[in-house]
Amino acid sequence: MGELPRLVATDLDGTLVRQDRSISPRTADVLARIAKRGTLVVMVTGRPVRWLSQVYNQLHEPLPAICANGAVVYDPGTDRVLRANPLAPDLLAEVTQRLRAEVPGAVFAVEVADGRELRHDAEWPVLWDAEDPSIRVLATPEEVASVPAVKLLIRAGRRDPDAFVQIVAAALGGLAEATHSSYSGLIEISAAGVTKAAGLAWFCEQHGIEPAEVVAFGDMPNDVPMLTWAGRAVAVGNAHPAVREIADDVTLSNDEDGVAAYLEDLFELESQP
């Protein structure tokens, strides 16, 4: 990448967002200054749409977002989903049936309504949104797989995610994409061909931007397709080994504002008082 990028794509959790779920004033300021110069800044995340407000509340202006690992492209200015690539109910039924047979103790949840609602097995551990009325507990496998879902989630107790994702992928046999973005044993499943790279590629095509004109930041295996696609791939210092292996550069950790530090150097931004 000989010139400055036309687009900056960044993962959120573990990359732009600190461990305490905050975005530092420094980071918010750097993103705003770059956007003001005319460079597009896009958030590319595994989060559902309903969790974006926690981020927007800490930024100067809301940024476009590619959510659910590439399945949803969201415009915060109009509160509209511009593109969605869900798993169809018949595919969901087949996938969950296979995984229930292959993975003892498996429990499932699905992100539906373009990620504005979560439906889950009765045994699913509800860690977030516990008091949110948009969560609906569905006790039967048929109900979990009854409507299109932009993401299917599977847990089976606490497992090593790198090993567990291989088990899930083998059971899927190419029917869908399996990845992970945490160390808790949660595996995220999308429709075949749906990745952060695919979502970002569609967004860039709408704006006439080539991969070589993109710098991307990430920290976990679900970021690997995006980082491989982008002209410059940057891992934060706390990144998973799979991300560090394919990155062109490594910056500071998320808690050290690694994305902001890298962009300050890249765009030659002077420090603000």
Rank of each mutant, 00 (worst) to 15 (best):
V259H: 01
G14T: 04
L269G: 10
L40Y: 12
L172I: 10
L4C: 05
G157K: 07
R159K: 14
A169S: 14
Q272P: 12
A242F: 10
A197D: 07
Q54R: 14
G237F: 06
L118K: 06
D223N: 10
E123P: 02
A35V: 06
A233D: 01
D248Q: 12
I154Q: 04
A71R: 01
W124G: 04
W229F: 09
G174H: 11
E142W: 03
P64Y: 15
K196C: 00
N57V: 12
A216G: 02
P141S: 14
F108S: 02
V126I: 14
A198F: 03
S24A: 12
D257T: 11
Q272G: 13
A216C: 08
L200I: 05
V41A: 09
I167Q: 14
Q206M: 13
I209W: 07
D79F: 08
G14V: 01
L59R: 05
Q19R: 15
G237A: 08
R159Q: 15
G218S: 10
V234K: 05
E143H: 05
R26G: 10
R119S: 02
K151D: 01
N57Q: 15
A171D: 05
T228Y: 06
A198Y: 02
Y262W: 13
T179G: 03
L82A: 09
A65C: 14
D29A: 15
R232M: 13
L138I: 13
L269W: 11
L153I: 11
A68D: 12
E111R: 00
V41R: 08
A145I: 00
A71G: 08
M226G: 00
M1W: 11
E3L: 13
V103W: 05
L127P: 10
L52Y: 09
E268R: 15
A101S: 15
V147G: 02
L92K: 02
D257M: 12
S22P: 02
G258R: 02
P64R: 13
N222W: 07
F164V: 00
V250F: 09
F203P: 01
D11K: 04
S24T: 15
E177C: 10
R18M: 12
A109N: 00
E210C: 09
G231C: 08
H60Q: 14
L91Q: 14
A130Y: 14
R80S: 12
V42R: 00
R83N: 13
F217W: 05
S181M: 08
